[in-house]
Structure formats: structure tokens, C-alpha cells
Amino acid sequence: MKMADLIDDNPNLLLMLQHFNIDFRVSDQTVSQLCTNYGISENLFISIANLYNSLGTKAQHPYTRDDLMQVIDFLKHSHHYYRSDKYPQISSYIRQLQENHSAKELKLLEKFFNEYFTEVMEHLDYEDNIAFPYFITLLKKSGDSGEQELYSSVEYGEHHTDIELKLKDLKHLLLKYVKIENDLDLRRRLFFALYELEFDLYIHSLIEETILIPAGVSIEKEQHA
């Protein structure tokens, strides 16, 4: 299958390419050629593409340690997308909206968003500084280590916050409750940005929950066996 045709079918795959650090000019390459060129296993690439295409989470083969290192890179790249692209974009739309309209709810909405934004940043920092380094050490270690870890994959899973839930709140407030007159262009841009973010966050947590955490847990088991 040609990568360009897949993108035509589902443009969201561009986001995936970016997270894999693959250039958008995919020429006439097939998925297999693309993976070879970028040193990504086809198994991993297809599993994640299936998530973007809503095709479920079942992988054909178990992931190798190399795959998992790439998953971490992938997740780090998506953090970059949230941190320096999507959230600032949404933030500026909300700011603009607040400036255009006198409704006091919008001041509160901006405050709500800013607090939420801070929370998200804290969560991303936590993953970057604590969770990912832990996984990287885990993956690099050979199987014979008996050291006690202060941290575990399960703990990482439990640390998942309500990032997605607050985003839903924001969407519901704008769709159902807060009255804003006109300004449809700005509001549509805001909605699209929120939906894009929601979609990618959803995939992000699917990857963590169905790929990274189970793999981490099984490596831990191996080491403690």
C-alpha cells in the first residue's frame, strides 16, 4: 500500500508521521519502504496507524525493545505537538474570544483553560522527566538485574490524569451552555482545534495503555522472575 494513498484516506495520519519524525513528502513509497528508510518496524508502524484509523489495538507480533524505544520517541514528539502547537493555538483562540466579547463567563472560561493548561504541562513534564526515563532504563537493562525499582509501569498507568475529561468539559460548555454571539469563524477554529487535540490525546493514551504499559509490566516480570 502506498503511503500517499493512506494519507488521502485519512489525513490524520500526517500527525502520526510527524510524531514518528517522518517527512510529509512520502513520494511513491509503500509503507514497507517507508519503514525501512526510517528504521521503524512495520509491525509497530501498522499498529499505530490502525489506532489512527480506528481499527483496534491488536498487534500481529509482540513488540521488540527497539519498538518500545521508538514508542517513547513517538510519545515525546506528541508532547511537543501539545506543548508548542495545539495548546498555544487553543489558548490564543480563547484569549481572542474573551477580548471580542464582554460576557463575563468568557473570563472564567479563560481562567478554566489556563488552569487546565498548567495541569497538562505538569503531566507532560512528569512523563518526560520521570516516566519515560524509567522506561528507557528498563528497556536498556539486561534481564538479570535484581535491583529494587522505586517506580513501576503500573504506577505510571495509575498516574493518568483527567486531561481528557476537562477537555470534554470545555467542549460541552462551548457547545451547550456559554452564550456567544456570532464570531463563527473564530469559534469554528477553536472547535476544530479542540477536536484535533482530543483525537490525538485519545490515541496518545491508547498507545500508553495498550503498548507501553503492558510491555513494561512484562519486562518487569521477566526481571523479577
Binding site: K104, E105, L108, L109, K111, F112, E115, D162, L165, K166, K168, D169, L170, H172, L173, K176, Y177, V178, K179
Partner: peptide
């Protein structure tokens, strides 16, 4: 009923309503 979970979200809901 409202689809809103967080306290700050509910505050905005209560004001809008």
C-alpha cells in the same frame, strides 16, 4: 445531566444558566 465534571466547569455552567 450536564456532561460537565470539573468544579470550575460547573461554575461556568451555573453562571451561563
Amino acid at each position: 445531566k450536564t456532561g460537565i465534571r470539573s468544579q470550575s466547569g460547573l461554575t461556568i455552567y451555573a453562571i451561563s444558566k
